[in-house]
Amino acid sequence: MKENNTSLLRVILRVLQGVLIGVGAVLPGISGGVLCVVFGIYKPVMELLGDPIRKFRTHVPKLLPVIVGGAVGFLGVAKILAFFLEAYPAPSVCLFIGLITGMLPSLFREANEKGRVKNAWVPLAVAFVVILALLISLNLFSITITPNFGWYVFCGFCLALSVIAPGMSFSTLLMPLGLYTPFVDGLGSLDFSILVPAGIGAVVTVICLARAVDALFDHFYAYAFHAIIGIVIAATIMIVPVDSFTSLGSAAVNVVCLAVGVAAALALDRFNSSIPKQDD
């Protein structure tokens, strides 16, 4: 009976994680890939994407609750949270920042899971600087283009990249080009003139990059994971709503949301650690 309860709790936890990943994938400034890392499922996701035929039987049963939750979050809950992000943008983003910040200790634990290595801070620092510079550069430009089939293929590439490369929020890549709003509107309305080219771009990206990322983890686990932590930190810094801390009232609300996010992340990490892990 206790084992059944544990299995049920594990499934519920995975579904909730999937919902947050789906939400993070569509909301501006948030990366679904970052949340995959935060919840400790990034590597199995990459293994499945990199070799779906061989990994199907071992990985899909474990990731199915996450996939279901992700679909719910992406198509359903995200619409609700998008309203809050539009109505209360700063507190909503601060809540996500708190969530990510509170999970950083667990990320470092996982990065050292296979043993500490010398100079692991080097890829962390390099990734941090490169991604921070890239995101700052994207924010400096504001270009509007006319969406078409080719550009929606590019949108699919960015969407897949936001999962494969944690910290690369597809909204961050698409907003400077004026593609974010028409792309998300098309996804929400199930517009096949947008879904088809986006699907093509996403599938090609997964085929080209997922296996390479999986191989990188197999051979350089600690270095690769520390580099991802650097990406996560850089991406998180870039979404801090600095302008919203101008008044005492708004600053207080933001700090409370940050604290709630951190507390929720620490509680989630403790709960996740308390559940016996299944063998991969």
Rank of each mutant, 00 (worst) to 15 (best):
N4I: 09
R10A: 14
L13T: 14
V19C: 12
L20V: 15
L20P: 03
I30D: 02
V37E: 08
V45P: 04
M46L: 15
E47R: 13
L49A: 12
G50T: 03
K55F: 00
K55G: 00
T58I: 00
K62M: 12
L64G: 08
P65R: 10
V66R: 06
I67W: 09
V77K: 11
E86F: 11
A87W: 14
P91D: 06
V93H: 05
I100A: 04
T101Y: 08
G102Q: 01
G102E: 03
L107G: 10
R109D: 13
E110I: 11
E110V: 09
N112L: 10
E113L: 11
K114H: 12
K114A: 00
V117Y: 07
N119H: 14
V126Q: 05
V129L: 14
A133Q: 08
L134R: 05
I136P: 02
F141Q: 14
I145D: 12
F154T: 11
G156I: 05
C158T: 10
V163G: 01
P166V: 05
L173Y: 11
L174C: 11
P176E: 10
L177A: 09
V184R: 06
G188N: 13
L190V: 09
L190Y: 12
I194Q: 01
L195C: 01
A198C: 11
V204Y: 02
I207C: 10
C208W: 15
C208D: 03
A212Y: 14
V213M: 15
F217T: 01
A224N: 07
F225D: 02
G230D: 06
V232M: 01
A235F: 07
I239K: 15
V242N: 10
D243I: 03
A252S: 15
V253E: 07
V262Q: 04
L268H: 03
D269F: 00
D269Y: 02
R270D: 10
F271S: 10
I275F: 06
I275C: 06
P276V: 03
D279K: 10
